[in-house]
């Protein structure tokens, strides 16, 4: 019987440990994208924000579409994403307020060294995608309604190619985040559209390298939006706004500009002050 009592005590102890572990600190939940989290940007800038305000930022990294959905359901206080059309829709539908420009990076087209579609060195992303489709060279798509996926579909439209026709052959939708899509492309030597940040931080490159960059269309702006407190009253408005104010102010913008991987700056602050 002593053993049983001890077991019950252990059960209560462990339960208390698990449930009571949430420290009562000031914090907000930011739904953001894999590109900002996996490139290491948040790890670089958030400690500075926490130090100056005492607010901890809890980042849930998802695709842009999913991040906006988390905001729509009221499960985040702030969304920090990169798909202008979807962001404007989010605000227009009343789910978010006070959208602000924060920074941009750019997309790069990644491909294998063998370059079966002969697109390396070009600057025109639409022409490159057209050549890839014509060569029926393997192309890995995110296929997850992320900001990068939306950009890819825009470029295919510019190229006058319907990638849906290539499904099952050269066009491969993985339905996964940027990293997994890059892993897949790396293992099948396929072309893939990536944001530069994730690409630079990515370790499993294999035969892959940048084949097309510098097209002005590949400019990739990030915005920050407060989840509408009128729709979701529990949203931590003051702390959320503190974060948004900080990231578009001099200190936050400098922190963004100061983040480098291998000496290369990943994100370029462009908040309008």
């Amino acid at each position: 019987m002593a053993l049983n009592r001890r077991r019950v005590a252990a059960a209560f102890l462990a339960t208390a440990l698990a449930l009571g572990a949430q420290a009562q600190e000031k914090s907000i939940v930011v739904a953001s994208t894999t590109s900002t989290e996996q490139s290491g940007l948040f790890g670089h800038i958030l400690p500075a924000f926490a130090k100056s305000t005492g607010i901890a930022v809890r980042v849930v990294a998802l695709g842009t579409g999913q991040a906006l959905d988390v905001g729509r359901r009221g499960d985040a206080d702030v969304v920090f994403v990169h798909d202008r059309a979807a962001e404007d829709r989010f605000v227009a539908e009343g789910y978010g307020v006070d959208r602000r420009d924060v920074m941009y990076n750019d997309f790069v087209l990644i491909g294998p060294k063998s370059d079966p579609a002969k697109v390396a060195g070009g600057r025109d992303v639409a022409a490159a995608l057209k050549a890839i489709a014509a060569a029926r060279a393997p192309f890995v798509s995110r296929g997850d309604k992320s900001g990068t996926h939306a950009a890819e579909l825009r470029y295919f439209k510019d190229a006058g190619v319907d990638p849906g026709e290539g499904k099952g052959s050269w066009y491969r939708e993985t339905g996964s985040g940027m990293g997994p899509a890059l892993n897949t492309a790396s293992s099948m030597n396929a072309y893939v559209l990536a944001d530069r940040g994730t690409w630079l931080a990515f370790r499993n490159r294999g035969e892959l390298r940048i084949v097309v960059e510098g097209d002005t269309r590949m400019f990739n702006p990030y915005g920050v939006i407060l989840v509408n407190p009128a729709k979701h009253p529990h949203v931590k408005q003051a702390e959320g706004r503190a974060f948004m104010d900080w990231i578009v102010a001099a200190e936050g913008q400098a922190a963004i500009a100061g983040y480098k991987v291998g000496g290369e700056q990943l994100f370029f602050p462009d908040a309008k002050r």
């Binding site: 939940v29 894999t34 996996q38 948040f42 790890g43 809890r58 980042v59 849930v60 990294a61 985040g177 940027m178 990293g179 997994p180 890059l182 892993n183 790396s186 931080a201 990515f202 370790r203 499993n204 490159r205």
Partner: peptide, 24 residues
Amino acid sequence: GGNIDGVTRVMTTAIALETSKGDL
């Protein structure tokens, strides 16, 4: 959990994250 660094990141989600980063 959302795999939040320092809050809800456990072994398995950390493994998934590092796989995403290509740090196999």
